[in-house]
Amino acid sequence: MRVAVMGAGAVGTSVLELAEEYGHTVTAMADSSSAAVDAGGLDAEAVLDRKHQEGIVGSGDPEDALDGEYDVLVEATPTTLGDAEPGFGHLREALERDRHVVLANKGPVAERYSDVRELEADSAGEVRFEATVGGAIPVLSTIESFGAAQITAVRGVLNGTANFILTRMQNEGLSYEHVLAEAQDLGVAEADPTFDVEGTDAALKCVIVANVLGDDEMTLADATVQGIHELPASALDLADDDGQTIRLVGEITADGVRVGPRLIADNSALAVSGTQNIVQFDTTYAGSLYNSGRGAGGPETATAVFADIGHLD
């Protein structure tokens, strides 16, 4: 497949680097201000060097990448809320050209799910978005293979930064502020950790799952969200004394989407450590099933992008 990549962050650059190994050709790549386009295939190393040294991926305009020759557009620009732009506009343009779209950007499917589905219905192209939920962990494809009607609830630890912070707080008895600073030093937490610690990132993932499972469109505004940023170490101590732990859990049930710190048994499958993520699927006839692994990171998320591309005809 010929692939155009919008976004040159961790995920976009990993897609560029790994495409050849998966048998695909990246014909265009754009960041917010520039683009590199070559219908015969980009030289990954040259593009990344230029990004590194000059802060741009090429001499073209980002629009050139969208207008270039490709079979699938990988949308990996940063997630935005509300109108989900510019990601949504990129998706629209590709679908209007009857191209496939693979999203790593959560915005379009969390905030404008029915708009995305309408555009897809009018296009010969298909939209897939495994990479938007749980990094490399197969969440949406698991739902797809069982059938949404057979999944009665989904629960999960879907934010590695929050889980890392809670794990350290409990194991070392440290305060939230202390562990957050440590996580930022390690690169586990971003300079502005708001999205992760206030539960927004986990909620967006849950809303996407709810959109795939349910008939009614949901957006972030429909989710009940509580973060971990106001949790004192004493709460984790008390949980620990009782053989329990506190994790930031996202829950998608018939009652809607909820994200918040929850008490779970220390030996519960959901009590994963560090940056690990886990998703529990409740099924009609097979009880609970679990998928776990790395929920974030460039190569991890790119792995899910290539799984999606592999599902396209």
Partner: peptide, 13 residues
């Protein structure tokens, strides 16, 4: 006050 609730539902593991 804030409540940290137990996670109900699913199979107990």
């Amino acid at each position: 006050l804030r409540v940290v609730e137990p996670l109900l539902g699913g199979e107990a593991v």
